[in-house]
Design a protein around this nucleic acid. Structure first.
Lengths: 183, 183
DNA sequence: TACTTTGTTCAAGTTTTTTTGAACAAAGTG
DNA sequence: CACTTTGTTCAAAAAAACTTGAACAAAGTA
């Protein structure tokens, strides 16, 4: 033997199986994704990357989680869009490699930006539409009721808008936690 | 005529159709329910009750929204469980009548209590399970990585637990908005 | 008791969402 | 250029979520 102990030159030198605890973590994120209204596979992918110190390729994600190419491709894209994973190009690797973002502040921020903010924006338009429909009402009492409801909804909208910045603040505090185990 | 202007003695004396603005509001809540992970019909039901000054029976909800008995029954039950609607027994009415809770603080509080808190509670168990699996690891480096991940997750859990009370606080502030239009 | 009204349950049907995998595009390599 | 590797797309299949309505239970009435 010319070079000892260097198995698997072809594939990247990573574990090609999941530890039991990793399966548990992946399952945890699977459930979390579900309750945030995201596909299970997004949670699985994030969970896997979260567990690993080293970046993984799409191919490794597919094989470790036993999911299809389509799911892996779409899941990684969406997670990157959310800021939950980022891709890196390892030197001498042709594949795109992925790592999980583990700063809660970033995760929450990305989620709010992609999910909550668009809803609030759409809300503005909807409220305007309701307002104009209400103003078209002939009957005075009916209009009074409509105006009242529109005002309530506008108030809620305002409060929600005020809440989001606070959430980002509060979650951001004391993000100082153990970093990667190696490095 | 012995008594003037008292039509519809049999059914409760309510509008039996939806105004255009009410349809828009119902649609708004339909979409909102969706993005909170609740069935569309829950949003529709809440939206309808939100629009009305007077309490509605399950039967009226079914007819106005053109949804089935099953949906109406389950939706109203779930919304009451969430604290988003409450039932009242109008004097001389055998049916149970429903009204919407319009205080945002109550709505948010109920939602967090029913949806977020249970998740956080389950999280405690999951974290313990992960911790014990990690501690079973033989390899020192592998264990170090597992411990690190468990610590990160515990930190996130703690932060989320701290966040919820703040959300309830912030949303509660200045809930002083127009109440019912009549009364 | 027999009848009516009101409300619940749940298996089956419908709709929506998610996943799959084969075809395709893009880019590196010899 | 021909060939390989890597990644995307999207129509169809599978899975999950939601809704329906008929059967049932509970409670009031005559």
């Amino acid at each position: 033997m010319t070079s000892f102990s260097v198995a698997n030159v072809s594939s990247s030198n990573q574990k090609d199986y999941l530890d039991e605890w990793e399966i548990a973590v992946i399952d945890l994120f699977l459930n979390a994704a579900n309750s945030f209204g995201l596909p299970k596979s997004y949670g699985q992918i994030y969970g896997l990357l979260f567990c690993r110190d080293q970046s993984l390729s799409m191919d490794e994600v597919m094989k470790l989680l036993e999911i299809s190419k389509g799911s892996a491709s779409q899941g990684l894209r969406a997670l990157r869009q959310l800021g939950a994973v980022s891709s890196v190009f390892e030197p001498g690797e042709r594949k795109e490699m992925f790592v999980a973002e583990i700063r809660l502040r970033k995760l929450v921020g990305g989620f709010l930006r992609e999910q909550a903010d668009p809803h609030l924006d759409k809300g503005v338009g909807r409220l305007k539409q309701i307002e104009s429909l209400v103003n078209d009402l002939e009957d005075v009492d009916a209009r009074k009721r409509g105006v009242c409801r529109h005002e309530i909804l506008s108030g809620w909208h305002r409060q929600m808008s005020r809440l989001l910045p606070w959430v980002k603040m509060i979650v951001g505090k004391s993000d100082r936690l153990p970093q990667k185990s190696s490095d």
